[in-house]
Write a protein that binds this DNA or RNA. Structure first.
Length: 212
DNA sequence: GTTACGATTTACT
DNA sequence: GTAAATCGTAACA
């Protein structure tokens, strides 16, 4: 029996901590995105930490650019990037400011508004696949670069918010290498997920692209 | 201006 | 299991 999720918004202070502390603490939290179709709510089941300018796997590794500028801003905001010419992925910026660390939201369980996500996720064979993977998660929510920089701490009446939810017990948190991260960026066990959760995406090693 | 590649997903053998 | 899809971004010339 799962307790009723706490709908108090997560505070700026929650995100203004080292990213390796925030990332596992996000599991079980509830993301709210209000779309033109209606609200969608997602319980986070899998995340990945990216530790600022010293992390070879991070978009911030080579310094600030037009794309990653939000990562260098205050914590508690959304960083959205476009990749592979097709997909969007979303992150939450963690503090302290100028550290440029963030948590990639890799997977979740849709708990409200599944009917809206199914229209965007026609290849999903069941509801567990609606947000099983970072690009699938963003697609299910209808998130794109328009949300880049949005404040996740402004409360549930805003287009985007993170609520306290029901954080998972520490003994239910698992960790391992990050998925699809090249080179030295793949060595750290900075991927976190909820044990035995059916919405967690499978691990994949980085696949170098073949020459044309 | 040109080039190489990506914090992925999907379809197909 | 492998390969195609598809284009913004950043590095390099």
């Amino acid at each position: 029996m799962i307790a009723t999720p706490d709908r108090t918004p997560l505070t700026r202070e929650f995100f203004d901590r080292p990213v390796l502390e925030v990332a596992p603490d996000l599991l079980g939290r509830v993301l709210v995105h209000t779309t033109p179709d209606g609200p969608i709510e997602l319980r986070l089941t899998e995340v990945e930490a990216y530790d600022g300018e010293n992390d070879p796997g991070s978009h911030a590794y080579r310094g600030r650019t037009p794309r990653n500028g939000v990562m260098f801003g205050p914590p508690g905001h959304v960083y959205v990037y476009f990749t592979y010419g097709m997909w969007h992925c979303m992150n939450l910026v963690c503090g302290p400011e100028d550290q440029a660390s963030a948590v990639l939201l890799r997977a979740g369980e849709v708990i409200v508004g599944a009917e809206h996500t199914r229209r965007r996720r026609l290849s999903a064979r069941n509801d567990k696949e609606l947000a099983k993977g970072p690009a699938r998660l963003a697609t299910a929510l209808g998130v794109d670069r328009a949300l880049d920089g949005a404040d996740a701490c402004a409360g549930p009446d805003n287009p985007f918010a993170l609520l306290t939810g029901t954080p998972v017990a520490p003994d239910q948190v698992r960790s391992g290498p990050r998925t699809g991260v090249a080179g030295d960026g793949g060595v750290h066990p900075w991927r976190y997920w909820i044990a035995n959760d059916p919405t967690v995406s499978p691990y994949r090693a980085h696949a170098p692209r073949r020459r044309t």
